[in-house]
Every structure is written in C-alpha cells, then in structure tokens.
Design a protein around this nucleic acid. Structure first.
Lengths: 333, 333
DNA sequence: CTGAAAGCGCTTACAG
DNA sequence: CTGAAAGCGCTTACAG
C-alpha cells in the first residue's frame, strides 16, 4: 500500500532526486550509463511509477482535456467522442467526458469542475446559454474548440457539419426520386441550436431552389417525446407529404416508431430520408437512405485544433471548418 | 491569464491561507462571520477557483475513478458507463473512460496511466489476460470492481449478468413458441470471456433441461466479421435450425444483415431472439424479442461498490452480484 | 477564532 | 556529469 516515491528511488540508487527526474524525462545528455543503469534497476526493484498529480502541479499542465457533450444520446456525439479519444490518446492526452444533458447549468458546472481540475483545454458542443462564460474563456486565451454547434460572437475554432449542403442534397435526392410534397421533422428549435436551425433554413432554401412548394404543415419541430403525436397528425392530414426527412438520429427513431405503429409502409406509402447515418440503417427493413456526417473526421479535427492550441505552436487565427455530407442511398425512398 | 491562487485571496482578505482553506472546506466552527464575508468577497472579486490538482496532491485522493471498458462498441458498455457516470457525478466524483479495445496490452497501459494519475479506484471489464496485474492491485488493497466479466482467483466485487438464467429463459421462450431445433451464435470464445462462455454453457444446460436435441452445427462462435459466413452456411444446411439466438448486440447486427442479404423472413422462415436489448429492437421490422440486462442497475451497483470501497466504510468482504434477465417479448419469434 | 510552518511528489534553473 | 534548493497551490496538525 505504501506508495514508492522518487525520493525512495533516489535513495536506493544513491543519486539525487534531480538526477532521477532527469532520467525519467529522458534528459540524459551527460548522464553516465552507470548512473542510468542504477536508476533503472532501482525503479524496477521498487516498482516505482511516477505521480502525475505532482508533476501536473509543478508543470502547470495536466495532459488532460475535457469534452462537454450537449447530449450523449445522439450516436453522432458518441462517435465524435470516440474520434477525439483516439487522437488524444495517441498524443498522450487523457480525456474526460461530461454530458451536459442539454442543460446550461450542468454545462456551466462541468466547465467549472474541469477547470478546477486544470484540464489543458476544452472541446464543447455548446448549449448556447453560457456565451458570457465562453467569452471569458476566450479572453483568457483558454484553449477551446466548439463542435457541432457554435455561438455567435465567440471567437473559437468551430468544427461544423455543412447543414445547408446536406439539406440541399436531401431535397435533391428526394426530388430525383419524384417526390414533391416533402416534409421535415426536427427536434425542438428552442435554444437556437445550430444544426437544427441550419437544417430547417437549408431545407427551405433547397425546396425553393428546386421549385418545390413549401407546406408549413409539413415542417415540424418539437420535443423528441412529442414527435410521435405531431407526426401522426401530419400523416392523418388529407393530403399528407409524399416523403419525410428526419432531422437527426433521435428524430429518426421516433419517425420509425410512428410508421410502425400506424402501419405505414416505407417507401410504398411514404418516402423517408434521414440526416445522420445510424448503425441499423443498413439492415433495417427497408434499409434507410441517409445523409451522413463524417463523424470521425470531425472529431479528429476538433482534437487536432485543440491540441495545436494547447501546444501554442500554430498562430491563433480562429476558423470555422465545414464538413461535407455524403449520401448513403438505400431503399427507404 | 494569470491564475489567481489562494495566496491572492488571503492577501486581499487580510487573513492567512489557512483561514481561507478552512472557509473553503466549510470548517467554520469558530469563524467570525465578518471573516467569512471578507473571504467570500475577495473570492468573488478575484474570480478565484481552487486548484484541485494541488488539493489532490496534498490529500492523496483525486475524487476521480477510472473505467476500463473491454470494448466500447457494445451498447451494453455504453449504457453501463452512463450509469456509472451518473452515480459518480452525483457523488462528486469524476470518471475517466478508457477503451481497451479487447487488447490486453492496451488494458495494461490504461491501468498504468490511470494509476499514475492517482485515480481513487477502478471499474473494469477485464480482458482476462492481466490477472497477475489485477492480483497485484488486490494485494495493495487498491479499490477495484469487475463488471460484465470476472477473472478466476481475483478477489474483488463482481457485478455480473445471470447468463445461465438468461439462456434458460431464452430457450424456454423459444420452446414455448414451438421451436425445437435451436441455434446459438456468439462472438469468439477465445480468451475465455465470461458472458460468452456462460451463455454457451447455459444454452447447453437449458436445451438439455428442456429435453431438446443439441445439434453441434447449430452452435457457432466466431469473430464478428466472420459471423455472416458462418451463419450463411448454417442457413444453407439441409435441415437448418428453426430459431436462432444471437449471443449479444454485435452478433445480432450480423445476424440481421445476413437475414436481409439472404432474404430470409423473420419470423416466418426462422425465429430470432437476442441477448441484450438494443434501441432499434422495438421498432425494427419485425420487432425483435430480446432478453435484456438491467444495464443501468448494473452500472450503478458497480459504482456504489467502488465508492464504498474508496470510502473504506464498509467491510471488505468481496462478493459476486448476479443481475436478473428480463424478457422483452416482441415479434421475431 | 486565526496564523506559521511543514509537507504532498515532483521539476527546474543554477551552481559546481 | 550531478546535487541542493526553491517552489507549484493546496491542507493540516499545532500553537496561541
């Protein structure tokens, strides 16, 4: 149970702590190989392993970053997080994930906690209600990257999906299949959440571009747990849409449940296309046509940008990176 | 950018660091309310927030635990992790997740790293190849809990699914539906991974109990990426099984792909039941009958056990906790 | 009711 | 080529 420390090693090896520290950090410019051997042997004999808390305190860096996810229930988030972890681990960084659960005060709480833990930087899917807090971090030059969403006026690197292009691709695809009355279902628009907002706007623009009529009743946004009702209404209307776009993976689930409950045949009775590719899309009956985000690339990019900022090597010009949608054409439309 | 420290606060408030520290830790037994006010005001004015790295070094505890998941690709793992995080956050603990990716050396690496970071304890889904390492931790009295899998001879608290009962329930259910030639597909049995092993054994036992014939060709275990082939063979055989049990969520995906590719109608041509409930089970066509693990309860239990061990309140008798399966009867069999 | 001092386990100029 | 010393930002007996 007794922890062995550097002092123990130095005593055992008959050298000073400084020397052990140099050895550990690979600074053996002029270290005699005899000394090295002695230290190495002592380390092994004692089973020493360095205490990185002490190291962090001294060096004022923890080689740890924090990730605050707005809502971990999205497959998108999970995949992005995976990419971030892969990249960071490869670079010797640890990552701490926190789930804000779409609650601004949880987000705030986690930011405080992570900063107290002295994490070297933060990647966040922001909730859009703590902009002063983020402004403060920016002013301090605290390494910070936004992903999936951004906040107007907060100057950080943003890693975003090209939602406009995605919607244009979606509408074009459906149009190409002969659908004209197209509906869109997204999660609640409250809180001005970037992707939902942009997808809705992008949808409008794309419909117009394609010269398709926009029916307000076909464009619905509501809380996840109310989507089934909203959708059922839409499907019962006298002239229902010929095809529907699900705004994200969570919405898709609700759409599929509704279709099943109401015994609606996809694609015979109604076409379906979703934003976000999901595991089961490929083997669902019918296989679901999806517009995929390059989740892995996006996560990796966010991690790269953050670690660069932490290194302080690159200049600090902040940018917004938009990632391209890709169409996975299957059988639901 | 300049960090404000406790010394700054004490100077501003005109008291000693000790007093500030007492204040922060809520030990104001005899502190004058005037002093308290002064300190509080200084903290706000300076925007002070305590450095938990320093605190951790001093107190020799980090209020952080590590979780090492064997393979994060299982929904089960993700859900368990979520439960662990919820419980730990509620108790003021941070959690660091690492994915061993089924590789014992990654597991070893993460254990070292987490210990260097001085985490207060570990919850692990062990790979079964580092038993000496774990033995070492146990000998040191290092707080450690296993979940999902266990290792023979390592005396820790184990949180496990009752796989035997699950298989018995599975076989019974199928039997009740009139199926007699039942197959089982699991992921590779290499590495003696607890749930697979136990599910297979449990399957055998249950079949025998039910007086059903065991056909060796119907019992297959292989790497995830070979399951499709194995299964296709099984389905092509002259007398194919009437129903199939998928050993876990990843296997289920492969089974569904194969069914789809070979145009096999579930449940008309073959019955299907899976271990592990998955998001899409409910709205898949057909809805999939599943035997669910109480993932949330299991994660929570593991977290509780670990935090108790860290507190050192409870005695240290180690136990194995088995969690009950529950049947989600749907339409795939 | 409050403060001075030691110490947690490292790293890092600096001296020799 | 190696060591003594200071210090990172806290907490905690202990003294008064």
């Amino acid at each position: 149970m007794k922890k062995v420390t550097m002092a123990d090693v130095s005593r055992q090896a008959g050298v000073s702590k400084s020397t052990v520290s140099q050895y550990l950090n690979g600074r053996f410019n002029y270290m005699s190989s005899e000394t090295k051997d002695r230290i190495q042997r002592s380390i092994e004999e004692l089973g020493y392993s360095p205490n990185s808390v002490a190291r962090s305190l001294r060096q004022k860096k923890t080689k740890t970053i924090g990730v605050i996810v707005a809502n971990i229930l999205h497959d998108f988030s999970t995949q992005v997080v995976r990419a971030i972890e892969d990249y960071c681990h490869a670079c010797g960084f640890t990552v701490i994930i926190c789930n804000a659960d779409d609650q601004p005060d949880k987000e705030r709480h986690y930011i405080d906690m992570l900063r107290a833990k002295q994490v070297d930087g933060l990647i966040v899917f922001p909730t859009n209600a703590n902009s002063e807090l983020f402004q403060g971090l920016v002013k301090e030059n605290y390494p910070l990257v936004f992903i999936d969403r951004f906040i107007e006026g907060v100057r950080v690197n943003n890693v975003l999906f090209d939602n406009k292009k995605a919607m244009s691709l979606a509408v074009q695809t459906l149009r190409g299949k002969g659908y004209e009355r197209i509906g869109l279902v997204t999660a609640s628009l409250e809180g001005a959440i970037t992707p939902r907002q942009e997808r809705r706007d992008g949808f409008m623009a794309a419909m117009e571009e394609q010269g398709l009529p926009i029916h307000d009743e076909y464009i619905q946004s509501s809380n996840i747990d109310q989507i089934k009702d909203v959708l059922a209404d839409m499907l019962q209307s006298t002239e229902r849409p010929e095809a529907i776009i699900a705004g994200n993976d969570r919405v898709l689930q609700e759409v599929l449940k509704t279709m099943k409950q109401n015994d609606i045949d996809v694609p015979k009775e109604i076409g379906l296309l979703t934003i976000d590719d999901v595991t089961f899309a490929e083997f669902y009956n019918p296989a679901i046509t999806a517009i995929a985000q390059p989740t892995y690339e996006m996560g990796r990019k966010a991690a790269e940008l953050l670690l660069e900022e932490i290194d302080g090597t690159k200049g600090s010009k902040k940018q917004t990176y938009r990632f391209e949608p890709s169409l996975q054409l299957r059988h639901s439309c």
